[in-house]
Structures are given as C-alpha cells and as structure tokens.
Amino acid sequence: MTVLENITLNEEGFMTNSAEWTEEFASALAEKEGITLTDAHWAIINFCREQAGDSGAAPTLRQITSGAGVTTKELFQLFPKGPAKKVAKISGLGKPEGCV
C-alpha cells in the first residue's frame, strides 16, 4: 500500500495532481477496486491519459470507445460498475463533471 500512501487523493479517491501518476499507482488502485490490469486495461488507461493531455479532464465513454477501439459492453466488462469513473480514477484523472 506504500504506493498509494505517497499520492494525494481527494475525498472521493481521485488524484488531485495528474502529474503524480505512475503505472505502479494505477496497478495498486485497480487492485483496490478489485481489478487486475491486463493489456486490454492498459490500452484504455494509456488512451485516456493521452486524450486528457494537460487538462487532466476525463474522457467520455464515447471518446474512449471510439478512440481506444472497444465496445461499451467490453468497457463495462473490463471496468465493471461505472467505467467512466473507474477509468478516470485509475488513470489519475479528474472525476467526470458537468457544469454545476
């Protein structure tokens, strides 16, 4: 758990500084969520980090499915129960937000 201790998370478990993210962190957090990361997971995580760029904003499900070439169903299998939020958390990005 030492990896997670070195990272600042907000009260909902999202990273406050996307630049602190490491692959070890992603694996540790995924494990905490009950997910063992495979290549298929990594393809999505890497896509999301690239897509978010400097803004740190989490991509939408449609951006992930069309950009990373997976179906929404597959995405839900890889990251069960709310993939948008889970992928954002594990990729060190902000919570998907509306304007209020």
Binding site: L61, G82, A84, K85, K95, P96, E97, G98, V100
Partner: peptide
C-alpha cells in the same frame, strides 16, 4: 444521468 451526481462541482453540490 451518466454523471456521478446531479451536481458534480464541489461548491454547487454542497449548496444545491
């Protein structure tokens, strides 16, 4: 809603 809540920004959600 596909979002995590009706209000997702900290100040708006704490007030509204």
């Amino acid at each position: 809603t596909p979002l995590p809540g009706a209000f997702t920004k900290p100040r708006a959600s704490s007030i509204l």
